[in-house]
Design a protein around this nucleic acid. Structure first.
Lengths: 211, 211
DNA sequence: GATCAAACATACCGATGGGTATGTCTGTCA
DNA sequence: TGACAGACATACCCATCGGTATGTTTGATC
């Protein structure tokens, strides 16, 4: 997230970023042309290229912002001074809510990771991608870390390969990316209710049960 | 799946379908050109267009095949003469295994549903898409149906909106689409082990627990 | 062995879209 | 008030790609 000053310049930048997120989210990367994003703002290519040197850089900016959002949403839980199980649940809740509230960015974030670009990628782009993957790994490592602690103290359980358990856990949390569509009349309460059920499901799948 | 006779003609068709699945899976729809698919087989466009009238039809064929696969994988469980909970678990197991074994087709199946094509789509294509969505709905309805039965008899539980619970359940099952990559040395046993942990996690999230 | 169709390959067309080069307008500052 | 830079719009270039039109080879059939 970094610092976001509300200069005029920054407002324009944010406006472009949001518009790009919506376009990439609804049409996908390739099907979204620079003109598409520009028209979405009632502008032309000139405006986009004034703020971003290339389409790829624009996409990367959206993707990185998505990553900023999930980190910010889960930081409180991760750093909380609470039992492991409560920390993990707080992270899950933050993650799930972010999936709903920042749906466009989260969709771009998701297929930004799936993006195969071994073709037509400059060294600079590859660098950007590998940095992003590193952040993703660091993010997932937090969940793995808490699971390991839970396993050690016996409050949580996992399969023979805990990595698979974590992946499945996070897949459940990421679910809204695939099936959720925001509606005009949506309220924060509705989002919280959905997030709550997702968290409950995911946490129950992880909990150690008495035999 | 329909009937698959092993005529030479059919072999060529299957070969193309598999190659297309791999290309679409790794590069996405737009980034995959007809030439890409052809080169993947050491051929040229002529061969592709000899079997498929358009790129869209090729993609639809792959997507529909993916749907065939998941239906076939879960039919035994759905129609089994067993307690609801066992039927659901069998379906989950079949689904998870299909995700691993037919990974390319499953990936295409997934973003075939996400594909937004309100632009550049003929009426015929829209018809094909809506039919596909209908099949998807019918598929998900089976899971919803079994969950409802489980709720009625008290063996399963769900949130205030069971639809969300089912979506989260299926998101966990679909997880491998996002995080799994097949490796050359993979064995069926390895796939089964992964599937087993996914099934365990998902089923535990759904089970009614004694207070 | 001439015919013919299936099964491709090759050459080409036209549109789309990323990127650039250049123009234009507006506010600011000396 | 004139110079200048930021913030765009407009016009243009060219590579890519879906699709088509036209070869060419191969096997079966009479």
């Amino acid at each position: 997230m970094t610092e976001i000053a509300t200069t005029a310049r920054n407002d324009r930048y944010e406006e472009l970023l949001t518009a790009a997120a919506e376009c990439f989210q609804s049409r996908g990367f390739d099907a979204t042309s620079i003109d598409t994003v520009a028209r979405h703002l009632g502008a032309t290519k000139g405006r986009v290229y004034h703020y971003f040197p290339s389409k790829m850089d624009l996409f990367n900016a959206v993707r990185d912002r998505g990553m900023d959002i999930v980190f910010q949403a889960t930081d409180p839980g991760y750093f909380a001074d609470l039992p492991v199980l409560d920390r993990l649940e707080a992270m899950a809740r933050g993650h799930a809510r972010a999936m709903l509230q920042h749906h466009s960015f989260m969709l771009v974030l998701k297929d930004g990771l799936l993006m195969r670009r071994y073709t037509t990628t400059t060294d600079f782009q590859k660098e950007s991608l590998s940095q992003h993957i590193a952040r993703r790994d660091a993010y997932e490592a937090r969940f793995r870390e808490l699971l390991a602690m839970g396993l050690a103290e016996g409050s949580l359980r996992a399969g023979p390969d805990p990595a698979i358990t974590v992946q499945t856990f996070m897949s459940a949390l990421n679910g809204p990316v695939a099936w959720f569509r925001p509606r005009p009349g949506d309220t924060p309460e509705k989002y919280d209710a959905i997030a709550e059920e997702i968290v409950r499901f995911a946490m129950q799948g992880l909990r150690a049960l008495p035999a």
